[in-house]
Design a protein around this nucleic acid. Structure first.
Lengths: 195, 195
DNA sequence: ACGATTTACGAACGTTCGTGCTATTTTGAC
DNA sequence: GTCAAAATAGCACGAACGTTCGTAAATCGT
């Protein structure tokens, strides 16, 4: 089907646009113009703006997983894989995988007080992401790489905070050292918890 | 002058509205309606939407300083004041000083890729905030409360990241433990750096 | 190659956006 | 109480918003 191919390319562009303008700032007219197609033609693929937003979030999640998880899964479970996830995250920021910075950091702060289906989906995906981080931490404990008294939820919270902090410093403050600082913080935190 | 009183109350409401809907989602019509006044009457106070946004950012900065810095300045410089800033920040999230979560965390992520006067102002204020954090850390070093090898920029980066992480977990994920987790992370990080 | 179906377009809808004007009302100094 | 000045309202504008609909064009199974 040609429709699904078109849909994919619409969504790729929508993700990039939304990472800059926000999911609410994402506009059907603007998106159609950038793709050289008509508003109504584009609209027909989704039926409503909210459906477009939801599909955009889904597409962004695919990119997120592809860029951060898939490469890290090559590493053996335990400390190496946990470290690989952290490195993937920082590299994902440095490389500008989303032109406006981390899509989900932006969406999290945009929708943290806007109830509705989009918030629900973003929250679910962020829960999944934190859950995956916790799982990687738990594996590192099971492998005997981290001290047995490490609290996975606590450490996942801290690592995620450092990632978001890196995104903030890098994109808003143009702090080239942001990634270095985040890496240093991650490394010294993890070093302190090694078995 | 009555005008300036009206202006203040417009901006108080604008800050609350923008913390939920974002600075772009802040709309003159909506704001006028909530205040029971006409669009054009409100508009005349600012002359453009961008000026309204800038004035809103300024008003939010006042509230931020009042809620976080002013109380912390009561504490003696050094470790107590640094700790007081951290506690103020977490309490500021828990109390919901801005109904949509930290205004500046939201604005930072909304404008990190939107060049213009608003971005410039937000960036400047965030630079000031990080700078103030660094100053408090430097004082704690000078007082001999923190180890002399502490890097103020690095520590300020880490503390700020934990604050934003707390905001994220508290408002989007409805994680009641977010504040506890952030406090724990702050305390253990600072404990490790005490002289 | 044909016919059915999918996909895309163009025009228009009502609404809201930010922004000008011109009145009218309200305010504050004398 | 008067009067200039300041503040607010009313109305209209062009543009953009999301959405609907009828129709043309492209695609695909056969």
């Amino acid at each position: 089907m040609k429709g699904s191919r078109t849909r994919q390319s619409i969504l790729e562009r929508a993700v990039d646009l939304a990472s800059v303008e926000g999911l609410e700032g994402l506009t059907i007219g603007r998106l159609a113009e950038e793709l050289g197609m008509s508003k109504s033609g584009l609209f027909a693929h989704f039926g409503s703006k909210e459906e477009l937003q939801l599909a955009t979030v889904e597409m962004a999640a695919e990119r997120y997983i592809r860029e951060i998880f898939t490469p890290a899964l090559q590493q053996p479970r335990g400390f190496p894989r946990l470290m690989a996830i952290c490195e993937s995250w920082l590299s994902y920021i440095r490389r500008g995988v989303f032109p406006g910075g981390c899509f989900f950091a932006a969406a999290s702060f945009e929708f943290d007080s806007r109830p509705g289906p989009v918030q629900d989906r973003v929250r679910k995906l962020m829960d999944d992401w934190i859950g995956a981080l916790e799982r990687a931490i738990r594996m590192a404990k099971d492998e005997g790489h981290l001290r047995p008294d490490v609290d996975p939820s606590q450490l996942a919270f801290e690592l995620n905070a450092l990632f978001f902090g890196a995104n903030f410093s890098f994109y808003l403050r143009n702090d080239e050292e942001a990634i270095t600082r985040a890496r240093k913080a991650v490394e010294s935190r993890l070093a302190a918890l090694r078995a």
